[in-house]
Amino acid sequence: MTFRLRAAKAGDLEHLYEMAKLTGGGFTNLPPDRNALTRKLERAETAFSRDDQQLGDDQFVLVLENTESGQVRGTCQLFTQVGQQWPFYSYRLNTLTQHSQELDRTVRAELLSLVTDLEGASEVGGLFLHPGERAGGLGLLLARSRYLFIAMHRARFADRILAELRGVIDDRGGSPFWDGVAGRFFGMTFQEADYFNAINGNQFIADLMPKHPVYVAMLNGEARKVIGVPHPTGRAAMQMLEKEGFRFEGYLDIFDGGPTMTARTDNVVSIRDSVAATLSATDLEGGDRALVATGRLGDFRCAYGQRALADDGTIAIDATCAAALGVTEGDEVWSVAR
């Protein structure tokens, strides 16, 4: 079977809805709500149709398609500037050090401060792979295709980029972090708050969240244990982000306490190492394993393939990849080593 990433279309709604029902909660960018998903696809359509080089408030949705059956088996998203429609809140974990000469004692207290430091950054998010396809490197294809998209449309993205990882969710679908921090002020369960945020945005956080720092030592043990810890299903994603150059710098999701990873956009490995070249042949046998992409905006496609880069700036790829991308000799493709 051959898979490719492509721009999402309105006809993908039911595929996205069926996948959204499988996320298990805590997945704000893929809510199991047809109206919210329809708005997301409409916003993506607007972003794909704006063919200029200006940084704006765009959201792009990509889907993973089985080229043989046409089934959509995964999705991912890109946001060009967070915090434009609503403030983009994070908790920042930092340390306050105090010293008493009389006691000859130094005390270090960890604090959670509500901040909007990451406002204006780009975000990669919304990555979900159908449970039946979690093999064969498709998760890596989903994740890294986003970076090729950014490289191919660099002017549409900011100089800083972030990725939020889902935090720990317990067996009943709740969040120990939410229960220990924000839940005390909102009178809402984690599921209720998470769903409301996915549908309506998080302005209610600004309205009701205490603005003073929270002392970590005052939280219950269950909440403290999950601060900055990714959901078990997100550990591999965290490792992939680290390989791309993302780092955890103390920023946390305000709902579930999951880590927010950040990087300089131009330092992300798959963006930095990507190359554009003219296609010289589509019948390569052998070669190096790579991700290969083509097309602007709504015509974007990306798939695994084999490549051979020539000194004259051309590239040869294998026939299977060329068929998945729908490219012929003379077309421009972007690629990065797998």
Rank of each mutant, 00 (worst) to 15 (best):
245 G>F: 02
287 G>Y: 04
113 S>A: 15
177 F>I: 12
117 D>F: 04
13 L>V: 12
309 L>P: 03
8 A>K: 05
287 G>W: 01
294 T>R: 05
117 D>T: 06
181 V>H: 04
124 V>G: 01
291 L>W: 00
122 S>R: 00
86 W>E: 07
230 P>W: 07
204 F>K: 09
77 Q>M: 12
186 F>S: 08
74 G>C: 05
15 H>T: 10
320 T>M: 12
306 Q>K: 08
315 I>L: 11
98 Q>T: 14
60 F>A: 03
248 F>Q: 04
11 G>H: 15
243 K>C: 02
27 F>P: 01
216 V>W: 09
24 G>R: 06
32 P>E: 14
71 Q>C: 11
260 T>E: 10
278 T>S: 09
321 C>S: 07
231 H>Y: 06
306 Q>Y: 05
213 P>V: 10
216 V>C: 10
257 G>Q: 09
126 G>K: 03
315 I>E: 01
317 I>K: 00
185 F>H: 13
96 L>V: 14
263 A>D: 00
67 T>L: 10
32 P>L: 10
221 G>Q: 14
329 E>P: 07
208 L>I: 15
250 G>S: 14
8 A>N: 07
191 Q>A: 12
262 T>V: 09
321 C>Y: 00
302 C>I: 02
143 A>Q: 05
305 G>H: 02
333 V>A: 00
292 V>H: 01
234 G>L: 10
117 D>K: 04
88 F>I: 06
5 L>C: 04
115 V>N: 03
11 G>N: 14
4 R>P: 02
22 L>C: 06
86 W>K: 08
199 I>S: 12
283 D>H: 13
82 V>L: 04
203 Q>G: 09
139 G>T: 00
95 T>Q: 15
163 A>W: 01
217 A>V: 13
18 E>M: 11
49 S>A: 12
96 L>I: 15
102 E>K: 11
270 S>L: 03
332 E>N: 14
22 L>R: 08
181 V>K: 05
307 R>C: 07
23 T>Y: 06
223 A>V: 11
315 I>H: 02
85 Q>G: 05
246 F>K: 03
271 I>E: 00
68 E>W: 14
260 T>S: 09
256 D>T: 15
104 D>W: 13
274 S>P: 02
297 L>N: 01
10 A>R: 13
21 K>R: 13
154 R>A: 02
224 R>C: 09
269 V>G: 05
43 R>G: 09
199 I>L: 13
140 L>W: 08
336 V>H: 02
39 R>L: 13
88 F>S: 04
102 E>H: 10
331 D>G: 05
